[in-house]
Design a protein around this nucleic acid. Structure first.
Lengths: 211, 211
DNA sequence: TAATAAACCGAGTACGCGGTCTATTATTGC
DNA sequence: GCAATAATAGACCGCGTACTCGGTTTATTA
């Protein structure tokens, strides 16, 4: 008899996913052929489909891993942040957590492709939707707590504000994917500035002096 | 002899583009077949390719029209805004101009698809890049003028700030395309609020009172 | 009204693609 | 070392697709 070594199996899958992710990021899902994935992974088509049932499953698998290895998972970190007693500081940590991937050059185009694909792929849509809902509730509860603690403008609707906080974070990815001159790392301080001014704005007169 | 009537020809092209745009928005470029476009436009494939050399040209043509009819073109309105002597008001008008399309349900997914396609389509990339550069310079010059007029925070770099203003506007499209609960029209005031607080922030202490 | 070309049709085609099948080799347990 | 099975290979296939081509109809104009 021979038994499958799960570690070896997973490692091989990861290797394929790594190769496929580059291609999907560069060329998109439909225009990346399974033959190209085979070549990039250095294997035959027979072997590729030994590890994944079909092309779409390869794409899904890229987004299924939550960083289960390498310490805390994203979900865990989000949950822990929500329990913090300094909501504003926790919010900044969440922002850092969610913006970290933007520095990886393949992530922005890959994320955009996923969003577009999710339109006609209910399974992927559910997958991304779950992630997004998690992030949204985390940010929204933090905003509510921060408002209660007097750390941010209490007039803001936590739900809407959370939507825009996440939208701003998403802009980091879309801008990076769209504009080659856009350097996410360099723009992070601007993002934080916008968030601070948006959320912490005191209830002052909004009209500055005219010239 | 028979001569081609340019008006008829253009109208027929527009009709095809309208039908194709719906499909491209709903299913994306690659997953929309020319046969589907034919059916939606009520014509044969032979006739479809009488009006467009290939499928990609159809997609391009959707974004090539600047609203040349129906009054002022977008480029003209942008240019006129830049010359305004009330930069802040002009900026708000530009925001309105650039956000108007977001209310059209097909525009957000279509724009996203175009951005993704532009990655591997240099021609489309150049087309969208031109548009974006126009918008960017318009916003950047307005920001510079507004700063000089004391209407906004003069410490902001006009280039970076313009990038983020456009990113926020783009968020309206991406959010609308991603989140079915997101209603662009309802979120426009929030967008304006963020812009106002971001740009007009007075040089005050950023830390509100702690609880 | 005849000539001419645009507008239109739809069967046909070539080809690239995702996925399968059979065969061979490596690796494990007994 | 002998099953038994995982891992790998690569030729193969059927389908869907963008696009073509020969032909017919419709409109314009001289």
């Amino acid at each position: 008899m021979r038994k499958v070594d799960p570690a070896k199996h997973r490692a091989r899958r990861q290797y394929i996913l790594h190769a496929a992710a580059q291609l999907f990021a560069a060329k998109g899902f439909e225009r990346t052929t399974t033959a190209e994935i085979c070549k990039a992974a250095g294997m035959s088509s027979g072997n590729l489909f030994h590890y994944f049932p079909n092309k779409r499953a390869i794409f899904h698998a890229i987004f299924e891993e939550d960083g289960a290895d390498s310490g805390e998972s994203k979900a865990e970190r989000l949950a822990r942040a929500q329990a913090s007693d300094d909501p504003w500081a926790a919010l900044l940590e969440v922002v850092e957590l969610l913006t970290a991937d933007a520095m990886n050059p393949v992530a922005p185009p890959l994320v955009m492709e996923a969003v577009v694909q999710a339109h006609r792929d209910p399974e992927l849509d559910a997958l991304l939707g779950r992630d997004n809902a998690q992030e949204h509730t985390a940010v929204a509860t933090l905003l509510a707590k921060a408002a209660a603690a007097g750390q941010i403008d209490p007039a803001l609707d936590p739900h809407d504000a959370a939507t825009w906080v996440l939208a701003l974070i998403a802009s980091l990815y879309t801008s990076a994917a769209t504009d080659p001159a856009f350097r996410p790392a360099a723009q992070l301080p601007v993002l934080r500035l916008i968030l601070q001014r948006f959320l912490k704005a005191p209830p002052l007169d909004v009209h500055p002096p005219r010239a």
